[in-house]
Design a binder for these strands. Structure first.
Length: 256
DNA sequence: ACGCGTGTTACTGT
DNA sequence: GACAGTAACACGCG
């Protein structure tokens, strides 16, 4: 469930709470897709000091003193918890035990959240780094609708279903617009909306939940919000009937 | 109490 | 190959 602003808030707080701690042991009760063996992971990380936690696309990255990085992808339901001495949370995927006795656990009842040791560098830009020029070039031949593009991690990393709707409303672009029909000026609005919506959301989350490291806060969202019937400017919010719901209004221009 | 929600991969079909 | 659509993963939550 967490999207980019949630992950951004988590990384901020994990950094505050965990930087400087040294790994005593790593346990991996359930990570089918981990790219190294449990023994290798424990061997490599044990003794290293946790230096930094940051977000890359939809992953959290934990950087250690010898330069190794542990990537955590929370997928739909991954949750992080801190614990004293022993993890009591169900559905544990991976546990980092620190020398002071405390620990960090990633859980996922669905079992699909994934840790990765030293994930490959991606050349796809992060959502907070794109500019209009990039979109113009990248979308020139793309006929897919713009919402699908925002969700495509091979084009732009970090945006999920809920924030895609929120961003497109702010840019006043219909989610069903054909990507290569969107005029350049509108692509500029889109880039501004991406940064504005995502950065404002992170601030809202940290303001209402200063220590958050899991879950999600969505009550401030204006469009992708089942409790709201109208946009802030008074237009009726329309919800389509697909498996991934799209929320939008007639205020958004359709390019086709 | 029961239906909704979320990311990714894998697959079919046009 | 581009693009659309769907299922599966399986439970917490209101």
């Amino acid at each position: 469930m967490p999207e980019l602003p949630d992950l951004q808030a988590f990384s901020h707080n994990l950094q505050k709470m965990l930087a400087g701690k040294t790994i005593k042991k790593v346990e991996v009760p359930n990570a089918k897709k981990l790219n190294v063996t449990t023994a290798e992971l424990d061997e490599i990380l044990s003794g290293q000091k946790l230096e930094k936690v940051y977000r890359e696309g939809k992953e959290l990255h934990i950087k250690f003193s010898k330069g190794d990085v542990l990537g955590l992808h929370l997928m739909l339901h991954g949750k992080l918890f801190l614990f004293d001495t022993k993890n009591e949370n169900k559905y544990s995927i991976i546990e980092l035990h620190f020398e002071d006795g405390r620990g960090l656990v990633l859980t996922d009842f669905q079992g699909i959240a994934t840790p990765t040791l030293n994930p490959d560098k991606k050349d796809v830009p992060d959502a907070l780094d794109v500019d209009a020029e990039y979109f113009k070039k990248r979308l020139a031949k793309t006929k897919t609708n713009i919402k699908t593009v925002l969700l495509d991690q091979k084009i732009i990393r970090g945006i999920g279903n809920a924030y895609a709707d929120e961003i497109l409303w702010h840019a006043r672009i219909s989610p069903f617009s054909v990507s290569n029909k969107i005029p350049e000026a509108k692509l500029k609005d889109l880039v501004k909306a991406i940064k504005g919506v995502l950065e404002d959301a992170e601030q809202s989350i940290l303001k209402s939940n200063p220590d958050i490291i899991n879950g999600e806060v969505r009550d401030f969202m204006n469009i992708h919000n089942s409790k709201k019937k109208q946009s802030p400017t008074g237009a009726a919010i329309i919800v389509n009937d697909a498996s991934r719901k799209t929320y939008y209004t007639e205020e958004q221009e359709l390019f086709e």
